[in-house]
Design a protein around this nucleic acid. Sequence first.
DNA 1: CATCAGGCGAGAC
DNA 2: GTCTCGCCTGAT
Length: 273
Amino acid sequence: MVRLKNDNFSIAQICRSGQCFRMDILGNKRAEAIGLVAFGKYLEVFQEGNEISLDCTQEDYDHIWKSYFDMDTDYAKIISRIDATDSYLMSAAAFGSGIRILRQDLWEMIISFIISQQNHIKRIRRCIRLLCERYGEKRVAPNGVEYYVFPTPKALSQARIEDLYACNLGYRSRYIYETANAVLHREINMEKLAGACYADASRELLKLCGVGAKVADCICLFALHKMEAFPKDTHINKVLAARYPNGFPFDRYHDCGGVLQQYLFFYHLNGMS
DNA sequence: CATCAGGCGAGAC
DNA sequence: GTCTCGCCTGAT
C-alpha cells in the first residue's frame, strides 16, 4: 500500500470526470474507493479527505501510477491563475478541484474516444467493457480480482466488422476496424506521436478514420497530456455560448486550457446549472 | 414517442 | 474550403 497526501486529488471526481472509462466505484462507505484498469494492471484506490491509499507496490507507483495520476503537476497553481472576476470559471474550478488530467494509454484513448462520439457515457463504458472481455487478455490481480486488459491493435484488427457491431458499437464499428488496421500497418507512427507537439500530434491523429477535431483533442489531452488541447463537445459548446458570449479567453490559459475544459465540463454535468 | 448523446465521413457546392 | 445530411443504439 502506497500512501499519499494531496489537496488537489479526488479519486471520485477523477472517476466521474469521464476522461477514463475503465474506473469503477467500489462502494466502500467509509472512504471513496475506486477500482481501475490501466496499462495492463488493476489498481484499487481509497481516499479519505486528502489522504490517498493506492493498493500497489512502491515500484508500480513510481513507474506507473505517479505518472498516470499526474502527481508532479501542481493543480492549485493552475487554479490560482484563474481570473478572479470570472466567477463561473472560479466556481467550476472549486467544484472540480480534485480532477487531474490522467496520462492514459495512447491506443486505448484513440479507440475509447472514437467510441465516445454521439454516445452516452453509460453505453461507451459498456462498449469498452465488451471489447475488453472479447478481445483483451484476462488477468488476475494480486488481490484476486479478475479483469481484462484493453485489447491490442492486433487483437482488434482481427475482429470482423459484424463482430464489432455485436459489441454495441453501431456505425463506429467501421471506424474501429479501419483504425485498428491503420495502426497495425503503421499508417500512423505511434512512437513519434508521443514526442510530437500538439499541432503535429493533432494532424497525425486526424488521419485516422473516425477521428475528427474533437476526438483528436481528447486523445491529445488524455493520452499525450497536451494541456493546450480544449475539446469542444456539445456540452462545452453550450457552456461557452451561455457563459462566454464574447468568447472564452483561450489566450490567457493557452497552456492549461484542457484542465479548465475539464472543470467546465464536470461542473456542467454534475454541478449547478 | 421524439429527441439527442462528449461527432464524423462523404458528397455537394 | 464550408455546408448539409445520415448514421447505430439506447437513455430520458
